[in-house]
Structures are given as structure tokens and as C-alpha cells.
């Protein structure tokens, strides 16, 4: 797993070297150990799933990656460098974008403005230029608008471009949130339960979008999901967590046949 070489998957995608590595992460809240000594890596271009029963520590792990929690022990390595403790906005500037389990969009803004916020880190016009809406400010606005329109096309949300997000139904909001994360052109995209609360049709749409994003933009994706069928079909490798510990790691097939994983999901008496 440590080899730097690239592999080609069965469906022809290229999976590159390790881009992010979690080393012996332990996260405690007071006496509660949310994550206990977990290590895993994410390779460039792959779809990496983190699964586990409720309360296993999956979302905590995502929050460690995106900088909301600072683990008490362990190291996060990103692009071959050890990452110092960072605020979430600094993590975002490094090129890690995410979505939330319970949608975190800006309700008062239009879909277009919401997605434009995804590109904020790229907009560098000075205060003066912004005040008079000339020069750099106007050019940037148009350049980034073009990039955003491509994503709007890609996710098929043209018709709601100028609708305030507060008026949209749940499924579309999830899609807009994905669009906002994509607009940042992240090197790693973290999806926290992208299909929670969706019906089968919406899940199929979302799965297709996730695969397309990975395929067309080559974006590395790490996702948490409860729907086993979806996870096993989408992901290249799966980490399984239970009670804050890692109990399995490997391809979907390996994980499916792992006794510890079966026990965690089907339930055996924990001692």
C-alpha cells in the first residue's frame, strides 16, 4: 500500500500514489474516545469510503481531516508533508473541500452565489477594485462565473441558477452543496453522507454524479455512507470503523468477507 506506483482499475481509471495519510489518529472528547489509533491512506484519484455503524466515529474522522477537530495523538500527512494543526479555512485553501451530512448551504443566497462562494479562495481582487467593480474585480467575477457555469451544466442545475437556496427541495440542495464543493476544484473532496434521506432515484442520480466527478475531473473522493449497496458499488477501497476503531480496510470484496465487519454489522455480543 505504501508503493508510490499507479494502478489502473478494472474500469480504466488511474489511481495514483498516496495523497493523504492518517497516522495513528486518536481523538478524545473528555473521557470519550471517538477515534482510537486509526491509520489509513487515500490515494490520488480513488473513491475511498469510510463506513461503520452509528457512532463509530466516521464523521469525527472527516472533521479531523477538514480541520474542525484537532486529534490528541497522531499525524495527518497531506501531499507528502506533515500537516500542522490548522483552522478549517486554512485546510480549505490547501484544496480540501467537503459537504455536510445535514446540508450547510447559505440559505439567503441564490444557487449561483452559493456556488460562487466555492471559488472565494481564488478571488484576489483588492478592496479598491471591488469598490468600483472595475479591473481585477470584474474580470475575476466573469472568469469564475464561467467556471461555475460549467459545474452548473455538469450537475444539471441550470434551471435553478438564480433561485434562493432556501426555496429548493432537499435533493436539489444536496446537489447544490456538491456543486459548491466542486467549484473549489479540490484535490480531495470529502462527502459526509451524500445520499442521506434520499429516495432511490435521487440516490442513483447522486451516485452517477459522484462517479462522473471522479471520472471527468479526476477528483479524489472520500465519502461516508450508510447505504451498503451504494458504498460497495462506488468505492475502490473501504475503511470500516466500529466504536472508534478500525476493523477492516480493503476493497469492497475483501471488506464484505471480513469476519469482524460482518460481526459489527450483523451484531454479535460485544464483551
Amino acid at each position: 500500500m505504501q508503493d508510490a506506483g499507479t494502478t489502473i482499475t478494472a474500469d480504466g481509471r488511474t489511481i495514483g500514489p498516496v495523497v493523504m495519510e492518517m497516522k495513528n489518529i486518536t481523538l478524545r472528547f473528555g473521557g470519550v474516545v471517538a477515534i482510537q489509533d486509526i491509520s489509513f491512506d487515500i490515494r490520488e484519484g480513488e473513491i475511498r469510503a469510510i463506513i461503520g455503524p452509528n457512532g463509530a466515529g466516521k464523521s469525527s474522522m472527516l472533521n479531523v481531516i477538514s480541520g474542525f477537530y484537532v486529534p490528541q495523538e497522531g499525524e495527518v500527512w497531506f501531499k507528502g508533508e506533515k500537516r500542522p494543526p490548522m483552522k478549517p479555512f486554512e485546510v480549505a485553501r490547501q484544496g480540501i473541500a467537503r459537504t455536510f451530512q445535514n446540508i450547510a448551504l447559505f440559505e439567503g443566497m441564490t444557487v449561483l452565489d452559493n456556488i460562487m462562494t466555492g471559488r472565494l479562495t481564488r478571488m484576489k481582487a483588492g478592496l479598491l477594485a471591488q469598490m468600483i467593480w472595475k479591473g481585477r474585480a470584474e474580470e475575476e467575477e466573469i472568469e469564475n462565473r464561467e467556471a461555475v457555469e460549467k459545474i452548473i451544466d455538469f450537475l444539471e442545475i441550470q434551471h435553478i441558477r438564480k433561485t434562493p437556496v432556501g426555496r429548493l427541495p432537499y435533493g436539489l440542495k444536496k446537489r447544490v452543496e456538491l456543486a459548491r464543493a466542486l467549484a473549489a476544484e479540490p484535490s480531495i473532496l470529502l462527502l459526509d453522507e451524500p445520499m442521506a434521506g434520499m429516495n432511490v432515484e435521487e440516490k442513483e442520480d447522486m451516485s452517477r454524479f459522484i462517479l462522473d466527478v471522479n471520472d471527468e475531473y479526476g477528483t479524489t473522493i472520500a465519502l461516508i455512507e450508510h447505504d451498503m449497496g451504494v458504498v460497495m458499488d462506488l468505492s475502490d477501497r473501504v475503511v470500516v470503523m466500529d466504536y472508534g476503531k478500525k476493523i477492516g480496510d480493503g476493497t469492497p470484496d475483501e471488506v464484505r468477507n471480513n469476519q469482524a465487519v460482518i460481526d459489527a454489522y450483523l451484531g454479535v455480543a460485544h464483551d
Binding site: 473541500a97 450547510a104 440559505e107 460562487m116 472565494l120 459548491r180
Partner: peptide, 21 residues
Amino acid sequence: GTLGRKWMAIRDMDIAAEIIG
């Protein structure tokens, strides 16, 4: 413009604003 979007992002949901930078 950019600054206004930052302000509105903070207004509507500060956690999400932080996560997009």
C-alpha cells in the same frame, strides 16, 4: 462581489463559510 459573498456566507452559516475558505 467577493467580499459581500464572504459576509453573507458568515451570516447564513459560519461553519460552512469556514469550510470553503
